[in-house]
Amino acid sequence: METKLIKTGKFIDGKEVLAIELTNTLGTYVKIYNYGAIINKFIVENKHGVKQDIVLGFDDIDQYTSDDYLSNYPYLGAVIGRYANRIKNGRFSIDGKTYQLSQANGGDCLHGGDIGFDKKVWDVLSTIDPSVTLQYISPAGEENFPGNLTVQLTFKLTDDNELILDFKASTDAPTAVNLTHHSYFNLAPKGGSIANHIHRIPASNYLEQDDNYVVTGKLIPVEGTIHDFLGDKAIGQDWNPDEGYDQTYVLDKPYGELTLASETSEADSGLKLSVYTTEPVAHFYTAKYLDVKRGKGGEDYHPYGAFCVETQHQPNAINVPEFTGTVLRPGENYKQTTIYKIEHT
């Protein structure tokens, strides 16, 4: 079990980008950058005894900041904050005061605004084999969110092949917080479409969305729809091949209880990824808009070449009173745990 801290020689806003390498006794290897808290590599042994990287990313840190990549930006492997997913019209109110955020994607705010936590260099607070704790202090007014927000994210790799993500946050003024991680997974040895991956989500309902993917507050039963993943099913079995999936699933569990959010397996590799979370929902995205040139090994990444399971509070919850609260106040502590567990089928 080991943690290594490696200098990249790259500086952003005067802060050095570092690579943190975590290795367990099974030989599983995770590489994380303190830029965007990006999970750059997640290498595991498949059923053939071959080491296989199950996340999308780049071989060179400079590619994460290139103009070409940012022009059609998919948030590869990055943390999302202050607010995951979309806020309707980029606007919300707390205690009678309205805050207007940046607007994109049809007038809504997406993933924290123009420069979210995914584009910040986080401080490395500590490294304890095999884990690392990163911290970012978001100043009041950043992306027009109120309050100074202190966020800590600990990555820990266990000998049970679990990568544990523990989020904590506190604020000095009431603010809106909804954090998640945006890793893109593909369990096939040679990549390609994830249509044949077998997927399960223990969720009896999903959230209605408007034409711009903003949730409205209405729950829709999955029964009888293409969104039913209560049992094992190939991802591509029922989907519209021109749309895939980009939906938020309401997990059949109490909020705060650490239980299964999704389970995905792939026959050729014999790998299974189980996601556990304390969060109330999981947003399932099959990468419709993925279009990345020269990823790892020079491979181009195409639509439906990966899937994301983004555990979080309900998107746009700040504007839907019935949803789990996303207002954090002084003296309160935001906490979230999500686990990526790898096994053989």
Rank of each mutant, 00 (worst) to 15 (best):
T65K: 08
H182F: 05
L101Q: 04
N196E: 05
G57P: 00
K31G: 13
T311G: 01
V121L: 15
T180S: 13
G116N: 10
H344P: 02
R200F: 06
T286E: 00
P174Y: 03
K190S: 14
I61R: 12
K41R: 14
S138D: 10
A195Q: 09
L258V: 04
T311A: 01
P174W: 04
I198C: 02
P321Q: 03
T3F: 03
T154R: 15
I235V: 05
I12D: 06
Y285H: 09
A267F: 01
N144C: 11
G9T: 09
A203E: 02
G217N: 06
G295L: 03
G297H: 09
D123K: 14
Y285F: 13
L258K: 13
L273R: 05
V44K: 09
S126C: 08
V275L: 07
F284N: 03
N105C: 06
E142D: 15
D252M: 08
P321N: 08
L187V: 00
G295C: 09
Y73Q: 11
I164L: 13
L149D: 04
L26P: 01
T264L: 03
K119G: 13
A173C: 10
F167P: 03
G244T: 05
A173H: 14
L22A: 12
V327C: 06
F11L: 15
P330W: 02
N316M: 01
H182D: 08
V17A: 08
L260P: 06
L153V: 13
L134S: 11
G113P: 10
T175E: 12
T154C: 13
L163I: 04
T286D: 00
K10L: 15
L157D: 09
V222P: 06
V275N: 04
G295Y: 03
A234Y: 01
V121A: 12
T171A: 09
T338M: 06
E266T: 07
G236K: 09
Y255F: 10
D159A: 13
V124N: 11
Y33M: 12
D13F: 13
S93H: 05
A195S: 11
K7E: 15
D62V: 13
L110F: 08
G77I: 01
K119C: 12
H197M: 02
A317F: 07
T338P: 02
H111I: 00
C109K: 00
T259S: 15
Y340T: 01
T175A: 10
K4T: 14
Y75G: 00
A282I: 00
L153N: 06
S269V: 12
S262Y: 02
K7W: 14
H283M: 07
Q103E: 11
L157Y: 12
D268T: 09
K272G: 00
S193C: 07
Y276P: 03
D53P: 09
Q135V: 06
G192S: 11
N85V: 02
T65D: 14
A84S: 15
L179A: 03
K41Q: 13
E143Y: 04
V250C: 06
N72I: 12
T65Y: 09
I87P: 01
N85I: 09
G96M: 05
S170H: 08
V121G: 08
K97T: 14
F167R: 04
I164W: 05
M1L: 14
Y136Q: 08
Q237T: 01
I342L: 09
T23F: 05
K31D: 04
E332T: 04
N24M: 07
H302Y: 15
Q247T: 03
A203G: 04
D246A: 04
